[in-house]
Computed example of a mutant assay.
Amino acid sequence: MANINIGIEENARIEIAQGLKHLLADSYTLYLQTHNFHWNVTGPQFRELHLMFEEHYTELATAVDDIAERIRTLGVAAPGTYKAFAQLSSIEEVDGVPSANEMIVILTASHEAVVRTCRQALKLAQEAEDESSAALISDRMREHEKTAWMLRAML
């Protein structure tokens, strides 16, 4: 890639991109987890949860693209394999099909994990005065905090 001169030192760009890689991995893993639960939820809350999970994974599909594109903007390759995401993500994969209530508990914890990843990445962006990355991360953090709150309210 050509020389990048956007006012952020190369080392800082690489460090911020690394934080964003973790956020991308968490977001993609959460996308997959949410989609899985959308397909497999059963019980009295089926319709409500099925539709809510669809809203969540649709929003996450846009988010992963935004995060990956920001990583590329910083001049770093974005991870794009399950292997890479598994190594970078703080979200544990779920075996089997949990009950609807367990799905809500698991998704709440996963959204909270993404918030913690956002907080770590946000510090890196703020230290480098990278407002574009900070804004993206802050927006993602706010979305995951709100979603975790809504999920907790269902328990």
Rank of each mutant, 00 (worst) to 15 (best):
E10W: 04
G75F: 08
Y31Q: 12
T34E: 00
E131L: 14
E54G: 07
A109G: 13
L124D: 02
F85M: 04
M52Q: 14
A113R: 09
E102Y: 05
T108P: 02
M103V: 04
H35V: 05
G7V: 05
T108D: 11
L136S: 01
Y31P: 05
V115S: 02
I71M: 10
A153P: 09
E55K: 15
Q126C: 04
T117E: 03
A113S: 15
H35A: 02
I8G: 00
P44H: 11
M141G: 00
A134Y: 05
R119Y: 03
E69N: 13
D139A: 10
S110M: 03
I14W: 07
N40Y: 14
T117K: 07
R119C: 03
R70H: 06
F37I: 05
L60N: 13
Q120F: 13
N11V: 06
M154N: 06
T117D: 00
Q18S: 10
I104A: 08
V115N: 08
A148P: 03
L49S: 01
E143F: 07
L122M: 07
E15L: 11
V94W: 09
L74P: 00
A77E: 06
M150S: 01
L88S: 13
I106K: 08
R13P: 02
Q126E: 15
N40C: 10
K123Q: 08
E127T: 13
R47L: 13
H50L: 11
E93P: 03
N40K: 14
A148I: 10
K83Q: 14
H56W: 12
Q87I: 08
